[in-house]
């Protein structure tokens, strides 16, 4: 029983961070109907920003959220504006050209970082990196709890933004029905640029929160990209609530899978769930709850 609870706790806490990655992806996929295969790489760039700030300026990783997020917003805007949007106007054989572009972008981001920082591992040492508190015998890793809390806070802010502001409403409208939104006079180009920036800065947040507990190397992004789209499919494209649920479900599934099946097959568990959802529940949890 105790193991089960500990595994659940570990899974839910991890799920909080996954959810942040997932929300960014779900917005991008919802609005643009493309898979952003550079998502994990954007997160990686933010982690390097945080790393540099911590290493050379002694800035606490949580504080660098305020720098990493806006920086990634700008990077995201530039990528969307100059690399992805122009593709809409180009005649090409495959409609997936934007997806393929994100592959290229991800590759270049990874390689640029590898060029600057070399391939070896970097980590940010904080006084609280391995601090834990205990409820009974169940341990809670402090930075993970903080990350979970910040993830929740960011999600609430995001909700407010999406529900109350004009831009937010336009993003939601575009995510729900692009054609209708265009007919209503929404400037699609501006919305996509905003969304990609927003998605990138959410990825940045998750990366920054992850850094105190994990470490960093240039090709760290790939596995997180995979997790992000698993979450998106689980929750349903464009659904932020879905992404939160999806993130937690994924975290718990991985944790339980690794505990009770086999550690080495941890990621396969996620992929398997993903396939089942793709095939039997296309549209994800959104379809069940209509949120």
């Amino acid at each position: 029983m105790q193991e089960l609870i500990q595994a659940l706790v570990a899974g839910v806490l991890m799920g909080g961070i996954y959810a942040l990655i997932g929300i960014g992806m779900t917005l991008i996929m919802g609005v643009m109907k493309i898979i952003n295969l550079a998502h994990g790489e954007l997160m990686m760039v933010a982690m390097y920003i945080t790393y540099v700030l911590a290493q050379y300026f002694g800035l606490d990783p949580y504080f660098s959220l305020l720098i990493a997020m806006p920086s990634l917003f700008i990077i995201g805007v530039l990528i969307q504006k100059y690399l992805l949007n122009p593709l809409l106007k180009v005649d090409s054989i495959l409609p997936e050209n934007q997806v393929l572009m994100t592959v290229g972008v991800g590759m270049v981001l990874t390689e640029v970082m590898r060029f600057i920082f070399q391939a070896d591992f970097k980590s940010v040492k904080t006084s609280y990196s391995s601090t834990a508190f205990y409820l009974g015998t169940i341990s809670f890793n402090l930075p993970m709890v903080v990350a979970f809390g910040i993830a929740v806070a960011l999600t609430i802010c995001l909700f407010y933004f999406l529900l109350k502001t004009d831009v937010g409403k336009s993003i939601r409208a575009t995510a729900q029905n692009k054609e209708a939104a265009l007919l209503m006079g929404i400037n699609a180009e501006k919305i996509t640029v905003m969304t990609y920036g927003l998605g990138a800065s959410l990825a940045a947040a998750s990366g920054t929160l992850l850094l105190p507990i994990y470490y960093l190397f240039p090709s760290i992004g790939g596995p997180f990209t995979l997790k992000a789209f698993v979450i998106t499919m689980l929750g349903g494209m464009g659904s932020t609530v879905g992404a939160i649920v999806g993130g937690v479900v994924l975290g718990v599934a991985e944790s339980l899978g690794a505990t009770y099946i086999k550690m080495g097959l941890k990621d396969s568990v996620a992929m398997f769930i993903f396939l089942l959802v793709l095939i039997f529940l296309p549209g994800g949890l959104k379809r069940l709850t209509k949120v």
Binding site: A7, A10, P223, E254, S255, G257, A258, T259, M263, K266
Partner: peptide, 11 residues
Amino acid sequence: YEKGGVDFKPL
């Protein structure tokens, strides 16, 4: 385990 894991707690 697969190298490069974030969370070894299940193990």
